[in-house]
């Protein structure tokens, strides 16, 4: 250095990474654990903030807490319904979407008719049709009225599952069609039969391609369950409506705001869990080198 050597010739070495450096980098790295920790911290702060507002008198805390419990009970009803609609809708949508791409004209026609019908019906109308028809058919048949009531309630859930299946069928079809023809051609060229090609080459790729759109449809159909209160389901929306109508008239607007705010949070939780799960599956199916951005 003293003999005037230019700094470019002998670049000063990068500072050695210290243990603290390393530890800090680990802590702030966007790992799964830091996500959990940040998420939990965010929730705790949010809850504390909302409670604080209540203590400060922005809203009446005791009332807000008193409606939370029934809403929480109704949340589990919503979850129960979603747990039926999503798997049934997915399986049916998967099969129908596949049927729409087969060479068998009859099967394709049937699947197309299904999609055309269920996509063009408003979900509310479907719910009414299914539950009312079930009720009418069984009236006077000697079946326990309680069972008839139960069945017509669940027919409404079936209606929603069939509705989302139509949308998922179209998503699946788009996925299957977007697998390049070269893939099936290559499978043909090594002698793999058509049906096996479908299972080992086309469907795995189609599934990966349609996951983002499926997550979208899942979150949409979760919110469609709010229509079920029209036939008497006491799920999240049904309970929220019920609570608003039983609140004191002088507090109606205020009470509605608090109740629907809480219901909205619970819907958010439900949707967030499902869409995160879909994201997790997306990561599972990610092909190294194929997707640059995510």
């Amino acid at each position: 250095m003293t003999d005037g050597v230019s700094p470019q010739a002998t670049p000063s070495p990068l500072p050695q990474e210290t243990r603290t450096h390393w530890a800090l980098r680990k802590v702030f790295a966007w790992s799964i654990w830091s996500r959990v920790v940040y998420g939990a911290a965010g929730v705790v702060f949010g809850v504390l903030f909302v409670l604080e507002l209540g203590y400060l008198g922005v809203y009446r805390l005791t009332y807000a807490l008193s409606v939370l419990n029934p809403l929480y009970q109704a949340f589990w009803v919503s979850l129960e319904v979603v747990a039926v609609i999503l798997p049934v809708g997915f399986c049916l949508g998967f099969v129908i979407g596949w049927a729409r791409t087969t060479r068998f004209v009859a099967l394709r026609g049937l699947a197309s008719a299904y999609v055309d019908f269920f996509r063009s019906m408003p979900p509310l109308a479907l719910i009414f049709f299914f539950s009312l028809i079930a009720g009418l058919e069984l009236r006077g048949s000697g079946v326990n009225p309680y069972d008839i009531r139960n069945l017509s309630l669940w027919m409404g859930v079936v209606a929603l599952a069939l509705h989302t299946a139509a949308y998922q069928a179209e998503i699946m079809r788009a996925g299957i069609l977007s697998v390049p023809a070269g893939q099936t051609e290559a499978a043909d060229a090594v002698g793999i039969s058509r049906i096996r090609t479908m299972f080992v080459v086309v469907l795995p790729q189609a599934f990966r391609l349609s996951l983002p759109a499926l997550g979208n449809e899942f979150s949409s159909s979760i919110k469609d369950t709010s229509l079920l209160n029209a036939i008497g389901w006491m799920e999240l929306s049904g309970m929220a409506l019920n609570l608003t109508s039983t609140s004191y008239t002088s507090h109606y607007v205020y009470a509605s705001l608090v109740i629907w705010f809480e219901a909205a949070i619970l819907y958010f939780v439900l949707t967030y869990v499902v869409t995160r799960a879909v994201r997790g599956i997306e990561d599972l199916y990610k092909v190294p080198g194929l997707e640059v951005a995510r």
């Binding site: 390049p180 070269g182 290559a186 790729q205 990966r208 199916y285």
Partner: peptide, 10 residues
């Protein structure tokens, strides 16, 4: 063997 390789990407 194809021009575009057509390997199974997944």
């Amino acid at each position: 063997v194809f021009q575009q390789f057509n390997l199974f990407t997944h």
